[in-house]
């Protein structure tokens, strides 16, 4: 694993770029790509910007409740020309428990079905495996991640996306929780949009195994001396292509053995 790399940008610039993204989010006005102004932006810069953005949200009273993975599908990595996933942090106001998503709070959201892990124990370390993740997991749940880029036209390069907290928007929680006493890579995933079949997949669509995806995150965090905590909710990566969300759209995911998550979109 890589060691903790230091940001190349100075702290003022990191703070300014994080502020620009935070303003874009709060005003629902997308901004231009950071890599257009800073073509030499490094991965360490990008995570420093994302971390600073989370600090801004915590200062505003939000609480970190978990993390998300991005670029976990081979198709997405190929399309973006990247060779590994990335991650972002989730805060409490992002959690949606009644399935209602209002477009008035977002810029240009899309939804992706995912398997969420809720940890029963702290989890950290550079050698954590998928098996370690499963044994530290209290339960799993189907969810929709609502991704929402703060960049114009939902267009970004890898490190723009990392700086933008991996496009984290909201998490629509499922209706029940399950102990993962079966192979999560094999479960079938069926997404319908307004009652019509949209796409199908299996759990393996997230980095080969959703728990492997979470394990990648734990190892990546270990490189900067961090970890995940008991109670954290980790969403392990999109299992189908994204669903565009328009007013009135109703989206349901059924995951075998895990149940469903549903969302309804309003203005």
């Amino acid at each position: 694993m890589r060691g903790p790399a230091a940001p190349r940008l100075d702290p003022e610039t990191i703070s300014e770029l994080a502020g620009r993204l935070d303003e874009a989010r709060r005003s629902r006005t997308p901004t231009t790509r950071l890599t257009d102004d800073h073509p030499g932006l490094t991965e360490a810069d990008a995570y420093a910007i994302a971390d600073h953005g989370i600090t801004l949200r915590v200062s505003a009273g939000e609480r970190v409740v978990g993390a998300k993975l991005g670029f976990t599908s081979a198709a997405m990595r190929d399309a973006m020309g990247v060779d590994s996933p990335n991650y972002g942090w989730l805060t409490d106001p992002m959690m949606v428990s009644d399935g209602q998503v209002s477009l008035g709070e977002l810029i240009h959201p899309k939804a992706e079905p995912e398997i969420a892990f809720v940890l029963g124990e702290d989890l950290e370390g550079a050698a954590v495996s998928a098996e370690d993740v499963l044994s530290a997991t209290a339960y799993v749940m189907p969810v929709f991640e609502v991704v929402d880029s703060r960049f114009v036209g939902f267009r970004f390069r890898e490190l723009d996306n990392t700086s933008d907290n991996s496009s984290a928007g909201m998490v629509v929680l499922g209706t029940r929780v399950t102990r993962p006493a079966f192979d999560l890579s094999r479960v079938g995933v069926v997404v319908t949009v307004n009652g019509e079949l949209f796409q199908t997949s299996s759990g393996a669509a997230a980095l080969g195994h959703p728990a492997a995806s979470v394990a990648w995150l734990v190892r990546r965090l270990a490189s900067s001396g961090r970890g995940l905590e008991a109670g954290h909710l980790i969403i392990s990566g999109g299992l189908t292509g994204p669903v565009d969300l328009l007013p009135g759209t109703s989206v349901v995911v059924e995951i075998d053995r895990l149940g469903t998550a549903s969302m309804r979109v309003s203005e």
């Binding site: 199908t200 997949s201 393996a204």
Partner: peptide
């Protein structure tokens, strides 16, 4: 190498 995933519903629902 994994090249595709799916579920039974893909066959006519």
């Amino acid at each position: 190498s994994m090249v595709a995933t799916g579920a039974g519903a893909a066959a006519l629902g």
